[in-house]
């Protein structure tokens, strides 16, 4: 049971499974960092992303690239519309945290009800078959889906890093995240930054929903669960630490995968929430992963 090859397989599958969650968590955490909002409207956008692609591929018979393109247009479009005609209105009114909470959550609920009316509650997948061709590499089963997922995630995170680090627009985002009022004094438009971040997170959402939708069935309600996993990753990584949140989602997925060796599968979710509880009570500002690692090496 503890043979190295099995452990390696679990490690690989765990990392691959975490890919879409990493993408969702980064989109959520980045939005929180820049706009200061726990944007639950992202679960509505997840539903829009998946069902647009689903309809494009299975209803209209479009090829993949066209379906993804349509998904990006619909998701990013709705994200920007929500930003301009929703969130900005409440910002201008100086509404409190709870107002944003209700608005974003109820909006998602609305989207999900509309989608339920249109598509029903049967689980749907992007492709007719969710079986993915498997190669055996060094004794480990590696599926096409695994490769796509990990490749896409690395690409997306690399692009985000480059964008934040080397482009003016990315530095503007960081400035607005740091202090929106001060940034505006230097001529950086916070509203523009909020729209840019809405588009970026929409891209992450489309990528994640493509991965999830080609791996298993989705029902209109699924995005509500998905956004919660993003919330947990964000909390564990520490608010305002986007890449730490990404590591936290991988870490959580691995913990869940490996726990299968020790406890029944139904306890896996519970473990996730155990971490959440501990984080909330013991590390209100997030678990500091790098420092933790240094401490271990020091010992």
């Amino acid at each position: 049971m503890f043979e190295p090859i099995i452990l390696l397989q679990i490690l690989w599958t765990g990392i691959a499974t975490s890919a879409p969650f990493v993408l969702l968590t980064v989109g959520f955490s980045l939005t929180l960092k820049v706009t200061g909002l726990w944007n639950f409207a992202q679960s509505g956008q997840m539903a829009i992303a998946f069902y647009t692609m689903f309809f494009a591929m299975n209803g209209l018979g479009l090829p993949l690239f066209a379906a993804v393109g349509l998904g990006v247009v619909m998701t990013a479009g709705s994200a920007v519309l929500i930003e301009i005609y929703g969130l900005q209105v409440f910002r201008d009114r100086q509404s409190g945290n709870l107002m944003f909470f209700i608005f974003t959550l109820i909006l998602s609920e609305f989207v999900i009800y509309v989608i339920t009316l249109l598509f029903g509650t049967e689980p749907e997948t992007l492709y007719k078959s969710i079986l993915s061709p498997v190669d055996i590499i060094g004794g480990i089963a590696v599926s096409e889906w695994d490769k796509t997922g990990i490749g896409l995630t690395i690409l997306a995170l690399g692009a985000l890093y480059g964008f934040m680090r080397y482009t003016k627009e990315g530095q503007f985002l960081a400035a607005v995240a740091d202090n929106a009022k001060l940034a505006e004094l230097y001529g950086i438009s916070a509203q523009r930054a909020y729209r840019v971040v809405a588009v970026i997170s929409a891209l992450f959402i489309v990528a994640a929903m493509y991965l999830i939708g080609s791996h298993g069935g989705i029902v209109p309600n699924s995005p509500l669960e998905l956004v919660l996993s993003a919330v947990i990753g964000t909390l564990l990584g520490g608010i305002g630490r986007v890449f730490a949140a990404a590591w936290a989602s991988i870490f959580l997925a691995l913990i869940q995968s490996f726990s299968i060796l020790f406890i029944g599968s139904r306890w896996q979710n519970l473990l996730l929430y155990g971490f959440l509880f501990a984080t909330i009570l013991l590390f209100p500002r997030g678990v500091r992963m790098p420092r933790l690692r240094l401490a271990l090496i020091g010992r």
């Binding site: 919330v231 909390l235 519970l270 209100p284």
Partner: peptide
């Protein structure tokens, strides 16, 4: 402000416990 986040985590965690 932290109560908002902690309460959300408390709710999700306890429900998960009930489910399991």
């Amino acid at each position: 402000d932290y109560l908002l986040i902690a309460s959300l985590g408390f709710q999700l965690g306890l429900l998960q416990l009930i489910k399991n």
